[in-house]
Amino acid sequence: MFFRKKGKIRKIEDERLLAFIEKQKKQLEMQQQMVENSVDPSEEVLYRLKLTKAKYLFLLKEARVRNTSKR
C-alpha cells in the first residue's frame, strides 16, 4: 500500500530524465554544427561543446544505471 507512491515517483522522474536527455542531445547537435560551420571557433564555444557533451554522456550513463528507456 505504501510502496505504490515510490513506483509512481520513479516513473515520473524517469520520464523527466528521458526528456532532459533529448533536450541535451538537441543542444549538443546544434553546438556541434556551429563548430563545424565556423571557420575559427572561439575557446568559449569549444568549452561549451565539451561541457554539453559531458552532461549528455553523464545523463546517458544515469539512464543506463536506472534501466530506463523509451518504450
Results as ranks from 00 to 15, higher is better:
M1E: 12
F2K: 13
F2A: 15
F3T: 15
F3I: 15
F3K: 15
K5H: 14
K6I: 15
G7C: 13
G7M: 13
R10M: 15
R10F: 15
R10N: 15
K11V: 14
K11P: 11
I12G: 10
E13T: 13
D14N: 14
D14W: 11
E15Q: 12
R16L: 10
R16I: 03
R16V: 08
L17W: 09
L17S: 12
L17A: 13
L17Q: 09
L18K: 01
L18H: 00
L18T: 02
A19Y: 00
A19W: 00
F20D: 05
I21H: 04
I21G: 05
I21Y: 04
I21K: 06
E22G: 09
E22R: 08
K23S: 12
Q24Y: 04
Q24S: 08
Q24K: 07
K26F: 06
K26C: 02
K26D: 03
L28M: 10
L28N: 06
E29W: 00
Q31I: 15
Q31F: 12
Q32W: 05
Q32H: 08
Q32N: 09
Q32E: 11
Q33W: 05
Q33Y: 02
Q33T: 03
M34P: 02
M34G: 04
M34E: 05
M34H: 04
V35M: 01
E36V: 09
N37I: 01
N37V: 04
S38I: 01
S38Q: 06
S38G: 05
V39N: 06
D40N: 13
D40E: 10
P41Q: 09
P41I: 04
P41A: 12
P41D: 06
S42W: 04
E43C: 10
E43Y: 10
E43Q: 12
E44T: 14
V45F: 00
V45E: 03
L46H: 02
L46Y: 03
L46S: 02
Y47M: 11
Y47V: 07
Y47E: 10
Y47W: 08
Y47A: 13
R48V: 06
R48G: 03
R48S: 07
R48D: 08
L49M: 06
L49V: 04
K50I: 10
L51V: 08
L51Y: 08
T52R: 07
T52I: 09
T52G: 07
T52E: 06
A54V: 01
A54M: 05
A54G: 07
K55R: 11
Y56G: 02
L57T: 08
L57K: 07
L57D: 10
F58Y: 08
F58I: 05
L59W: 01
L60V: 08
L60F: 03
K61W: 01
E62Q: 03
E62K: 02
R64Q: 07
R64T: 00
V65H: 04
V65P: 01
V65E: 04
R66N: 01
R66I: 00
R66T: 00
N67T: 11
N67D: 11
N67L: 12
T68N: 09
T68Q: 09
S69W: 09
K70I: 12
K70H: 12
K70P: 07
R71S: 09
R71P: 10
